[in-house]
């Protein structure tokens, strides 16, 4: 794989994310990634207390739970209508290998 270390990384990440990028996109992506990672690097400056717990967003920690009860499923046709390819019963996808 030719290119800068950043481009190699971008190639690997694009693979992991299942995104096809052409060479020009890889180049520009590598540049932007380096720029933003550089900016994000300032997080290293933050002096974090040792016991600090991460905050993942939800303000309340009350259990959100539902009873084990049935609810009507969505009719198959409505669900499959949005699929790019189906035979009316199954979603169809190209062969795995």
């Amino acid at each position: 794989m030719a290119g800068t270390p950043e481009q190699t990384t971008v190639n690997q990440v694009a693979k992991l994310a299942r995104i096809h990028l052409n060479e020009q996109q890889i180049e520009s992506s590598a540049e932007k990634l380096a720029q933003i990672l550089g900016y994000i690097g300032q997080l290293d400056e933050v002096e974090l207390p040792e016991d600090v717990t991460p905050f993942f967003g939800a303000i309340e920690s009350v259990n959100a739970i539902r009873d084990d009860q049935l609810q009507a499923s969505v009719p198959r046709k409505e669900i499959l209508d949005n699929a790019p390819d189906s035979d009316g019963e199954f979603y169809l996808v190209p062969p795995v290998f």
């Binding site: 539902r66 084990d68 009860q69 049935l70 609810q71 009507a72 499923s73 969505v74 198959r76 669900i79 499959l80 019963e89 199954f90 979603y91």
Partner: peptide
């Protein structure tokens, strides 16, 4: 009787894609 995160049935052997939401 219902799935882990929704109210669809867990019944085995029903018609394909008939128990989804």
């Amino acid at each position: 009787i219902s799935k882990l995160f929704c109210g669809c049935s867990t019944q085995f052997g029903e018609a394909a894609n008939s128990q989804t939401c």
